[in-house]
């Protein structure tokens, strides 16, 4: 292992790690919004929007991120929409993540039994109050493991961004291997940086899950 090589290119990795995190976080935040929107459309049975959400979820979950990125990056300019690679990366991640988030939220909401709604209604709570104070807190607790798994999955998916020339971690590693043939060092740095990003997220997720596991469902 050539440590001087590692030291030399550490700042470059840092820079691309920042970009990876930036795009990852933006994409995940957007995918949460899309997920909430789809769940609302499906749960409240809003005509048209509900079917649209279903179609979107199926397309998004059954196509690889790489293809989605190519479509956005190379396809959109053909119909006159020009953006940069960063925006494409965020859009691609949000497009993929939205459906995963929607499925996680839906599973949480569906797990809350009907009689819990009835129990709230019988106390005089309105539909919105029932959702706000009774259903959502329980659904959140139930869907938290799936939600955190999605966050980690989406952060890892950022590794395909290099395909649309985004200077992310993967791009940097491939670039250095191509230039200097220092495969071991380049990949070592790549693994370390992904771990540095993902381990704290994973840890925070476990803490959050434990914090929200108050409900003890079924009993």
């Amino acid at each position: 292992m050539k440590w001087d090589f590692i030291m030399k290119y550490l700042p470059l990795y840092q820079k691309s790690a920042v970009l990876t995190v930036k795009i990852g976080v933006a994409g995940i935040l957007l995918s949460i919004l899309i997920g909430i929107f789809c769940t609302a459309a499906q749960n409240f049975r809003i005509p048209f929007l509900r079917q649209a959400a279903n179609v979107y979820v199926e397309i998004s979950r059954n196509t690889p991120l790489l293809i989605q990125l190519f479509f956005i990056y190379y396809g959109l300019p053909k119909i006159g929409i020009r953006t940069n690679a960063e925006v494409c990366g965020i859009a691609g991640l949000a497009f993929l993540g939205g459906s995963y988030m929607a499925e996680a939220f839906r599973s949480g909401i569906e797990a809350v039994e009907t009689v819990q709604y009835e129990s709230a209604y019988s106390l005089g709570l309105s539909r919105w109050q029932t959702l706000r104070y009774v259903v959502f807190p329980q659904a959140l607790s139930i869907c938290m493991p799936a939600f955190m798994a999605n966050v980690i999955f989406l952060l890892k998916e950022t590794s395909v961004f290099s395909a649309i020339s985004l200077m992310d971690l993967m791009f940097t590693a491939k670039d250095l291997i191509g230039l200097y043939y220092q495969t071991t060092e380049s990949l070592f740095l790549l693994v370390i940086f992904y771990l540095l990003i993902l381990l704290p997220v994973s840890l925070a997720g476990s803490l959050l899950e434990r914090r929200l596991r108050y409900a003890g469902f079924g009993t």
Binding site: S122, V134, P137, S141
Partner: peptide
């Protein structure tokens, strides 16, 4: 909701809010 406030209901399976 206003009418239901005036009708208290207790269910077989308790239905307390677990959270």
């Amino acid at each position: 909701p206003e009418i239901r406030q005036k009708i208290g209901m207790v269910f077989q399976s308790y239905e307390l809010f677990p959270h």
